[in-house]
Amino acid sequence: MKVAVVVFPGTNCEQDVVHALRALGGTAELVWHGDADLAGADGVVLPGGFAHGDYLRTGAIARFSPVMTAVDRLAAAGRPVLGICNGFQVLCEAGLLPGALVANRDLRFICRPVHVRVESTASILTAAATVGDVLRLPLNSYEGNYTASAAMLGELAATDRVVLRYCDPCGAVTEEANVNGSLDAIAGVANAAGNVAGLMPHPERASDEILGSTDGVVVLESFLIALRLAAVR
C-alpha cells in the first residue's frame, strides 16, 4: 500500500505529509509533477504549498502538469485522492472536485487554528470519524474561501458531499467561525464517488501532541483506511 505525495515546483508541505503518514504506519513516497505515472501508488495526496507559485490562479498551471493525467486515472479507478489546501485548489481546478477557492473574505492570509465539524463520513476524508465530531485543525491560506454555483451547492448538500464545515469550538456553524467567508462555511468536499476529497485546513499539522493537536489524525487515518479498502475491492 503506497501513497504518492506529489511535488509541484512551489509545493512546500510534501515532507510534512510524508512525515505524518509514516507516523501512522503509512508508506509514502514523493512523486515529481513532471512524472506521468505514480510509480505504482495506490493513492495520492496533493499537499499544500504554492504550486507553480500560484501564478495566474491557484492550481491553474498545476492542473496541466503531466502527473495530473495519472491522478485522473487513479481517481477514475476509485483509488483515494486527497487534496490538502493548495492540493484542494488543484483538484478543483482540475475538475476532480466541484467548486473553487477564492481569496479570503478579509483579503488577508490566515494562519490560525480553526474548528471544523464533520458533516459526512461518506468519503475518504472522514470515514473513520463520526458525524458531528469537532476537529481543531490549522488553517493556512490566502485563497481558502470556498465557492460554488447555487446548483452545485444544492447538489453537494443533496448528495452528502459537504464533508467539513467551519464551526466554533462547540460545533456551532457561525459567521464568526467561518473565518475566510466560505460559502455555507464549507471547509471540505468530496466527489460523487467519495474517493476524491479536499479540505483547506492541514490535518498533517495536527497529528502530533507536541504541536498542540492530534485532531488531524482521524483525517489521515481515514485516507489510509480508504487506501486499503480500495485495494481489497
Binding site: R108, F109, I110, L211
Partner: peptide, 11 residues
Amino acid sequence: IYRQYDHQLFL
C-alpha cells in the same frame, strides 16, 4: 500580524 504568517510549516 503573526496570523498572516505561515508559522507552522515543517511541523
